[in-house]
C-alpha cells in the first residue's frame, strides 16, 4: 500500500508541501485546498494527511471511493454525490472539502510534496503487509 509517511519531528512548518499540493491540483496557493495540511498542536508541528486506511470506502453511499492497485484510496468524482460523509467520518480528519467544490479531495500519495520538502519530513512509502492483504 502506497502512502505518505511522515516524521513530524523534522517539520519546520514552512508550508512548501501545502503550496505544491494546492498548486498542482487546484492551480492556486491555498492551504485549504491542499490535501496535506500542516497544523500546530501544543506548540508542535502536526502533519495531517491521509493514511490510506480506507475507512471512507465503506462510508460512501455510492461506492465512489475505491482502493487502486497500488493501494491508494481514490475518489471517483464522476460518481460522487458530494454528501461529505467521508469527510465527517475520516479517522485522521484528513479527507478534505472546500466550499468552492462539490466533491471532497484527498492525498493520493503522488509524492510531489515529498520531493519539495526541504527537511525530508515526508516521503512516499509502501506498506507491504497491507498491500498483500488488498
Amino acid at each position: 500500500m502506497k502512502y505518505l509517511a511522515k516524521d513530524q519531528s523534522k517539520c519546520i512548518q514552512c508550508g512548501q508541501c501545502e503550496e505544491v499540493c494546492s498548486t498542482t491540483y487546484f492551480k492556486t496557493k491555498d492551504k485549504f485546498k491542499s490535501c496535506i495540511q500542516i497544523n500546530e498542536v501544543e506548540s508542535k508541528p502536526e502533519i495531517n494527511v491521509c493514511s490510506q486506511c480506507g475507512e471512507c470506502i465503506d462510508i460512501c453511499p455510492v461506492q465512489a471511493i475505491t482502493r487502486d492497485k497500488l493501494g491508494v484510496v481514490r475518489i471517483n468524482k464522476k460518481i460522487c454525490v458530494g454528501c461529505l460523509m467521508c469527510v465527517g467520518f475520516c479517522p485522521e480528519v484528513a479527507m478534505r472539502q472546500h466550499d468552492e467544490y462539490l466533491e471532497p479531495f484527498k492525498c493520493i500519495a503522488c509524492g510531489l510534496c515529498a520531493k519539495s520538502c526541504p527537511q525530508k519530513a515526508i516521503s512516499v512509502e509502501v506498506y507491504q503487509e497491507a498491500l498483500a492483504e488488498n
Binding site: D58, I59, P61, C83, M85, F89
Partner: peptide, 10 residues
C-alpha cells in the same frame, strides 16, 4: 454498510 435511505444520511 452505508444504510441511509437518501445520500448523505450518516
Amino acid at each position: 454498510m452505508a444504510d441511509g435511505c437518501w445520500y448523505g444520511c450518516s
